[in-house]
């Protein structure tokens, strides 16, 4: 039973090797002069940078608010802190 399945898989693999076709899964695996490659390149770079920019902005914003609150706390009693 197992030998039959094994033979079937080997047969499929041999068949696949006998009828090769060109398949391009990677849009950037072309010449760099192609405009679509440039489009993908800049899009990938943009999207790659964006999570760092977003987390940096949120982290920076939280740090700024924390810094400002502590500076205010040092100057005023806690009951005067506004906007909580």
């Amino acid at each position: 039973m197992i030998d039959r399945y094994f033979s079937f898989i080997i047969g499929i693999l041999v068949l696949a090797l006998l009828i090769p076709t060109v398949a391009e899964a990677c849009p950037s695996c072309k010449t760099m002069d192609d405009p679509i490659v440039q489009g993908f390149k800049w899009s990938i770079l943009f999207l790659m940078a964006m999570p760092y920019i977003v987390s940096g902005l949120i982290g920076g914003g939280v740090f700024y608010v924390y810094y400002r609150t502590h500076r205010t706390d040092n100057r005023k009693p806690p009951s005067n802190v506004k906007g909580v």
Partner: peptide, 9 residues
């Protein structure tokens, strides 16, 4: 990003 692909492409 989608716009960039189509625009630059």
């Amino acid at each position: 990003g989608t716009f960039l692909v189509f625009r630059l492409g």
